[in-house]
Every structure is written in structure tokens, then in C-alpha cells.
Simulated assay, not measured.
Amino acid sequence: MLIEEDGRCKASSSAGQSPYKWQNIWHAGLPPKVKLFAWRSVWEGLPVMSRLVARGMQVDTIFPMYGEGEETTAHMILECRAASSIWRHYVLRLDTRQVDMGSFRGWCCLMQDKYKDSKWWDVFWSIAWGIWLKRNIWIFEKKERRESDILYKAMGLIGEYEEENLRENILNTNAAFHGQILGIGGVLRDDSGAAVVAYCSTKKGSFAVDVGEAIAMRASL
């Protein structure tokens, strides 16, 4: 059940909330550092000002870039004027301030039921990572990063990772026949030729050579 409140939709306390689907992070086609960032974000583990205060540090909780409210994970990634502009005007065309779930995790749980395409989440986490970098550059270097730079970096992360995986990993498979026994196996190698992981098994039956090789390839994937 959603309640209208000041032009925004807010989930009522009686509304059921789906558990977060962690495969949106761990199965994403993104570098490990971005996956770790995403995981920490959903767990409210990023060192934003409100979390630092909760851990006993004496810091100002106001968002350091624009001073427009308490810096929570949701405010930093979704709600501050720079972040909301990026979400609204580029790629995903997302109005992140339309729905208020009270936490970043709550927002992600709601959105995962609406956006089920894994590629959508790859783009989302890449842009969120860029916003986090923009925030950190402002805090530690006192520099403003342009929105176009964030989008360029985000799209580059996806392309780089997919290209790297295609380039570095080679799967070799084979099939061997002995009477009514088919032996199948596969070895995944990196770009240096070193084995990363191997698989082997047997199957009973009479198979044509091309069918046996197809079975080996399928089983090894």
C-alpha cells in the first residue's frame, strides 16, 4: 500500500517488502570493486556522515557537497540535487525522489520488482558508483566532477569488464569414447594458459562424435 505524502509515494508500514535479491549484485557484469560498493550500499555500510556519527565519530551529518540535508546512503546516491539530476536526465530516466522507502535498501527492494533486467541493474550500480566517486572527490580533493564524466565512466565499466572476461577466459572441451561409455571434460584457462577450473564426467550410451562433443561443451559451461 502506498500513501501520497507531499507529492511523493511513501510505503506504509503495513506494506510487505520483498527481500533483496543479491544476484542483482553478485551476478552483475561489473568489476569486483563495484559489486562490493553495491553490497555495502544495500547493507548501509558506506561511510556516509550519518553512519560515521552512529559509529561514535564527531562529524557534521549534513551532506558535505550541498548542505541540503543529512547525508544518508539514500540521500547521497538518490536524493541530493546532483544525483537526482543524473538519474533523471541520463540513460535510465529515473525519478529517484518519487518514491520514499525510508532507506536505500528499501528503495532497492521496491525497484527490483519493477526492473528485472540484469543489464538495468548493471547500469544502475555503475552510475551509483560514479556518484560515490563524485562525492569522494569533492570531500577529499575539493573538486567538482561533471555529470558527463560520471556517465562516461559508468558505461566504460560495463564495457571494460565484459571485454576483459571475453578476452581472458578460454574454455577447452573434449569427449572420448570407450564402448558404451562417453567421457567428457572441460578446462577453463586464463590468457596465460593456466587452468582456472576443470570439469570431467562420464555418461552411458552410444553417441555420435559430434553429439558427444556437444554434450561435453554443454556440461562444461
Rank of each mutant, 00 (worst) to 15 (best):
W120V: 09
S118Y: 07
A11S: 13
I215V: 15
W132E: 03
L30E: 08
E68S: 11
S220T: 04
Q58V: 04
V53C: 11
K143V: 01
M101H: 14
G106F: 00
G106P: 08
M76D: 04
C80D: 07
E144G: 09
R8T: 05
I131M: 15
R93E: 12
G179S: 08
R146H: 07
L166F: 03
K33N: 13
Y161E: 15
G156R: 05
A83Y: 01
G56I: 03
E4I: 05
R55C: 13
D149R: 08
S85M: 01
A194Y: 13
G7D: 14
S85L: 03
I181C: 12
S220G: 13
S192D: 14
V42H: 05
Y152F: 06
V123N: 15
R145Y: 02
G183E: 01
A216H: 04
Y199F: 15
K116S: 15
E141D: 14
E4D: 08
R51L: 05
M57D: 05
L94V: 07
R135L: 03
A82T: 08
R97E: 04
S148L: 00
W39H: 13
N174F: 00
A214C: 09
G186C: 07
S148G: 04
L133M: 14
V196N: 12
G159R: 10
E144T: 03
L2H: 04
I25G: 10
A28G: 05
D100G: 11
F140G: 07
A176E: 00
R93P: 03
V211W: 01
N165Q: 14
V59S: 02
H178V: 06
E44S: 14
I184F: 04
K116L: 10
C200L: 01
T73L: 02
R81K: 11
M65C: 12
A219P: 14
A194T: 15
E5Y: 09
L221H: 12
R189T: 07
S118E: 07
S148Q: 00
M49E: 13
W26S: 11
H27G: 09
R93Q: 12
P64W: 05
S18C: 07
R135Q: 08
F140L: 14
A74W: 00
E79T: 11
N169F: 00
W22H: 15
R40H: 10
G193P: 08
F37S: 05
E79P: 07
I3T: 11
N172E: 13
L30R: 01
V42C: 12
R218H: 13
Q98M: 12
L182T: 12
L188Y: 10
D191E: 11
I137N: 15
W107E: 08
E70M: 02
K21A: 05
R145G: 12
C109F: 06
F104I: 02
E44C: 10
T202A: 02
L166H: 10
L78W: 12
V123F: 02
Q180L: 14
S50F: 00
